[in-house]
């Protein structure tokens, strides 16, 4: 028996080491960080959101793009905590800063970089990712190649800054060097109780790819500002696997 437990311990330790070597960093505070993500949490390797890595988000229309912005803002909020600073880099900024406070981000802690030339965009995202003082860098791009994304991922690994890359309406879903690929789409809301009208934001969160984790799809609700509680709807297709990474 003893040898068996020893073996198990050895195997888990080796697995953790392999993960580390593969570039999956786990936040030191992942216990606190984890509480917010609800059911999505289990999909990550070792049950912890990978920080210091690139996350790729894909949106194909305006609705998805807005939902993705909200979800990214929520993630950035968890990464920033009380005193973090986030860089939001993009060509055409549509994000409305006051709305970020609904997702637990202090809008004055977000620095928006409005890039005018496309050739500067990736350079700026990379430069941001190299700055250890930042908690997160959100980049909005349209097209990105594998080589360019590899540079960004390496910058993340060196500085331990988390990068959230939002690919808006890309022409092709080409693979990029990111630990996760997400797709967030809005879902119809339900009024609170008997009241008509619009309730809390609801999203269909699809984790299309995750390195060493379990891809999946969840129907979640962003409930009350600052409070991240994700509840699954009473639908039969709960936790259904969509696509393996």
């Amino acid at each position: 028996m003893e040898t068996a437990t020893d073996k198990n311990e050895l195997i888990t330790r080796l697995r953790a080491e392999i993960l580390f070597l593969q570039g999956v960093r786990v936040a030191l505070h992942h216990k606190q960080m984890g509480t917010g993500l609800g059911p999505v949490q289990d999909a990550f390797p070792q049950g912890a959101f990978p920080v210091g890595a690139m996350h790729e988000f894909i949106s194909t229309d305006q609705g998805q793009s807005a939902a993705t912005s909200g979800f990214m803002a929520a993630l950035a909020g968890f990464l920033m905590k009380q005193d973090g600073v986030c860089l939001w880099v993009g060509m055409q900024r549509t994000v409305f800063p006051p709305a970020l406070s609904f997702f637990g981000v202090a809008p004055e802690r977000v620095i928006f970089i409005d890039v005018k030339k496309e050739r500067d965009l990736l350079w700026m995202i990379e430069e941001g990712l190299r700055c250890q003082a930042l908690s997160a860098v959100i980049g909005q791009v349209q097209e990105i190649g594998l080589t360019a994304s590899r540079r960004l991922q390496l910058a993340c690994e060196q500085s331990n800054v988390t990068g959230l890359l939002h690919r808006i309406n890309p022409r092709s879903m080409n693979p990029v060097a990111a630990v996760c690929r997400w797709q967030i789409s809005p879902l119809p809301t339900e009024g609170q109780g008997e009241l008509p009208g619009i309730g809390h934001p609801r999203w269909n969160v699809q984790l299309l790819k995750i390195r060493n984790g379990h891809p999946g799809s969840w129907q979640v609700q962003w409930d009350n500002q600052n409070l991240k509680s994700i509840i699954t709807q009473d639908s039969p297709g709960k936790g259904q696997l969509l696509q393996a990474g």
Binding site: I111, F112, I113, D114, A133
Partner: peptide
Amino acid sequence: IAELLDRLVARAGPDISHRY
């Protein structure tokens, strides 16, 4: 962060960074 912003401004010209 200020040094980072200086680098970005040096590359792309002034008034690219905004904070609200």
